[in-house]
Structure formats: structure tokens, C-alpha cells
């Protein structure tokens, strides 16, 4: 393929350069810009789910709903001790009562919270791996002898619809990515066919002089490759500018889950490979189109 790209200067003259270039690089640039944006979106979502999502799914909150504050405090200590001894628990963080009351202030108001109303004791725990329903139920059974009025909220349970939505969006971005690649291939095929028709006379003369199908195909491959390269550079530049700008704004947004939706380093690598892959795809499409068309000639 690389050798096909490096045509001697005199062979390049057989298909004038001004014909295929023109709208073609710009169309490829636009298609690639959209392809890269959708790829970046898919990669960021996947990264966010893998990082933030997995982290959240491993977490759970243990609530001790005991009205008596002294008994609640005693149970909190006892539950914390049991939790620290369990091998499936990676981390136990007993949330101070003051912090819990601060969390409730926006909903209940300062006056109500400062009054002596019962507020559940909270213990944040992190499992070594995301727990399923059976694990949560087993944990509850284990803790009930120590604290009968206990409730365990697994974050994965309330995150599940969100993860489903994210997974659907990732599939959607992948489908759009494939559609854009198909559309780019179709654009290349149409452009090559148009150019082939324009230069049919030259190709026929080459054929009559013993030129092979691949010799003709190489002429088109090179032109298409150059157009795709130019379009790729423009498309990548524009897409990178948009991704960096949006990335900066997303990073400034709370909560932290959105901050995880940034493009990782390997995402940039994949984005850089896409224009090169599209160039290779365009060259293959050009070769296939020309060879298929020429096979109809004797």
C-alpha cells in the first residue's frame, strides 16, 4: 500500500491533480470531523463509566435507623467494627453526625435540624468489587444481630438505570461512528467513479498499451489518499479544538461523575489513528472501485 502511494512524478500526471481535489478533501474533512466527535463522545462515556461508574458501583451506605441516640452511637461503633473485619469490604468510613445533619439542612432547614430529631447514623463502605443483590442481603443478615434497624443502600442499585442509559449511548455512538465510516466510503466511491468516468479515455489508452488494472488503480489511490490525508488533518484539527474546549467546560462541572467524562490519553491515540485508518480505507475503496469498474472492460 505504501509503495502504491509513492508514484513517480510522470505517472501522477496521468490523472490531473485538480480534478479529484477540490470538494473531495473538504467533504472528507467534514465527515472525519463528525466521526472524530462521535468517537470522542463514545470514548469519554466509556471512560467515565469504567472509572467513576465502577467506583460508584462498589460503594454502599449503611444506615442505622435507631431513634435512641445513645443506642444508635453504640450500634454505629459495633457495625463499623464488624464491617472492618469482613474480607469483601475494602474501606469503611463512618460519617460524622454533624456531616449528616449538614447534608439534611438544605431540605429540612436549620431550625429543624438543630432540634433534637433522630437522624440515621451513616457508614460509607466500599466493596472490593461491585456487590450484587445477594451480597447486600448477606451483609444485612450479618449486621442485623448488631443493629436490628439497619438498612443498606447499594449505589449500584440506584446507578443501574444511569449505567443502562450510558451503555445505550455508547452503543449509539458506535453505530453512528460506523454509519459515518460507511458514508465516508460511499463518498470516496462516488468521487472515484466520477473521476474514472472523466478519465475513461486515458484509462482506455493505458489499457490498450498494456497497462494493468492495478496500474490504473494506483493512480486513483494516490489522489484519494492525498485528499483523505488533507481532509484528515483539517477534520482532526477542528475536532481536537472542539474536544479540548468542551473538555475544559466539562471538567468545571459538578458533580464529579461528569468530570470523569474526559478523554483519556489512549482516547487521543485512537482519535489520531482514525484519520489514518480512514485514509487507508479510502485507498482500499478507490482500488476496489477502479478494479471493479475496469474488470467490465476487456
Amino acid at each position: 500500500m505504501l509503495l502504491d502511494f509513492a508514484l513517480p512524478a510522470h505517472d501522477r500526471k496521468l490523472i490531473p491533480e485538480g480534478r479529484l481535489s477540490g470538494p473531495m478533501p473538504w467533504v472528507i474533512a467534514i465527515m472525519l470531523f463528525l466521526t472524530l466527535l462521535i468517537a470522542a463522545m463514545g470514548l469519554s462515556l466509556a471512560y467515565a463509566i469504567r472509572n467513576g461508574g465502577d467506583d460508584l458501583a462498589q460503594q454502599a451506605t449503611v444506615q442505622i435507623i435507631e431513634p435512641d441516640p445513645i443506642e444508635r452511637a453504640t450500634q454505629k461503633v459495633a457495625v463499623s467494627r464488624v464491617l472492618r473485619e469482613l474480607p469483601e469490604i475494602a474501606d469503611v468510613n463512618s460519617v460524622p453526625d454533624g456531616e449528616v445533619r449538614n447534608l439534611l439542612k438544605p431540605w429540612l432547614g436549620n431550625d429543624v435540624i438543630d432540634a433534637d430529631i433522630p437522624v440515621p447514623a451513616l457508614i460509607d463502605i466500599r466493596f472490593k468489587k461491585a456487590p450484587d443483590g445477594a451480597t447486600i442481603r448477606a451483609l444485612k443478615r450479618r449486621l442485623e444481630p448488631v443493629a436490628p434497624k439497619i438498612r443498606i443502600d447499594s449505589h449500584s442499585s440506584w446507578m443501574a438505570p444511569f449505567f443502562d442509559l450510558m451503555s445505550s449511548l455508547i452503543f449509539l455512538t458506535f453505530a453512528i461512528f460506523l454509519l459515518l465510516l460507511i458514508a465516508t466510503s460511499a463518498v470516496v466511491i462516488l468521487a472515484v467513479r466520477s473521476t474514472l468516468n472523466t478519465h475513461r479515455g486515458t484509462i482506455e489508452i493505458m489499457h490498450m498499451m498494456g497497462g494493468t488494472d492495478l496500474q490504473a488503480a494506483r493512480l486513483f489511490q494516490r489522489r484519494v489518499a492525498l485528499d483523505a490525508l488533507l481532509g484528515g488533518v483539517v477534520g482532526f484539527g477542528a475536532a481536537a479544538a472542539v474536544i479540548l474546549t468542551l473538555g475544559g467546560r466539562i471538567a468545571a462541572v459538578e458533580p464529579a461523575l461528569l468530570a470523569d467524562a474526559s478523554l483519556p490519553w489512549y482516547g487521543w491515540l485512537i482519535l489520531a489513528i482514525i484519520p489514518l485508518a480512514v485514509m487507508g480505507l479510502a485507498m482500499l475503496m478507490a482500488r476496489w472501485t477502479v478494479v471493479s469498474a475496469l474488470k467490465k472492460m476487456l
Partner: peptide, 11 residues
């Protein structure tokens, strides 16, 4: 020149 040279280049 290039027209005349074409068969040789193709070969």
C-alpha cells in the same frame, strides 16, 4: 514527450 513515452513507462 510524455505521450510518446507512455508505452515505455507502462512497460
Amino acid at each position: 514527450f510524455d505521450n510518446i513515452a507512455l508505452p515505455l513507462r507502462i512497460a
